[in-house]
Design a protein around this nucleic acid. Sequence first.
DNA 1: TATTGTTATACTCTATAACTATA
DNA 2: TATAGTTATAGAGTATAACAATA
Lengths: 156, 156
Amino acid sequence: MAEPTLLTLLPHLMRLSRVIGRGQLVERAMAATNSGLDRPAMSVLFQLRMAEEPLRIGEIAARMEVAGPHVTRLVQGIERRKLVRRVVDPQDQRARLIDLTPEGRQVTDRYLETILGWFEEALAAWPAEDRDRFATLTKRFADDLANRLARLDEED
Amino acid sequence: MAEPTLLTLLPHLMRLSRVIGRGQLVERAMAATNSGLDRPAMSVLFQLRMAEEPLRIGEIAARMEVAGPHVTRLVQGIERRKLVRRVVDPQDQRARLIDLTPEGRQVTDRYLETILGWFEEALAAWPAEDRDRFATLTKRFADDLANRLARLDEED
DNA sequence: TATTGTTATACTCTATAACTATA
DNA sequence: TATAGTTATAGAGTATAACAATA
């Protein structure tokens, strides 16, 4: 069955996906941050933090790869806690721009620093070259795979 | 905030985790396999296929990192479709050993070959050395990170 | 008395459909 | 008439608690 490298890669990817996406990592970082938020809400803050600019509801949904109404709800929750502001987009009165408040940014940074701290400790024995290589290859792999899968649509 | 390599790595990992674990990859491969199964059920078959031997309910739950009762349900479903057999463990009458039937193995192999085929196409331009390196680093990263997180328990 | 698995139940996350308001 | 977002509703996936059988 296929090339052995790819066959052995698959379980590692599945496992990594679980460690990152669900359970352990995120869940624990949220507990450490002690913000009272849940994972999906933090995911919205994370997207805003990485974007470094206000985003529309639809744009957040696209980046999180979830449906729009879901983001509406999540934003309502974090707005109530004053972690984001929701202002009408001056370019288009239908749209809303979601922006981190200073408090929101602070919470998000605490969360990120917790995770990155664990990364540093986990990779303490890694030479810098391996880290860079892993980061580069991970991005390339995600891109190449996503592109291949996107082409499946067109093949119909 | 922390080392830049790790900060940029994070979104790539999150994205990879989404591409692999949810949506696109698995969902499409299931559709292509046309088995009528859902993702969690296929995940059980996948674990059995990788183990290359019958596994107990509890062992499957541990490998999938989900709760026991959930696996009981999933196994009931795939047993009804005759993709696995469920026999009493001769070593321990309380336990059940779950084993792939030939049909179950066939379905799982079709699923795996679909995914690995896409991997090969996605990585067509990758030198063999990069593939090996990526596989090695991915495993190491998952291991090191899981170990670091496991130590959080002991620190309490 | 502890462990393996099962049954029953409830909760979290996310999707779809119908609607409102702007464009 | 199309688009951005919202409200209402429903579904998938998983967890927890209580139980049964065997160790």
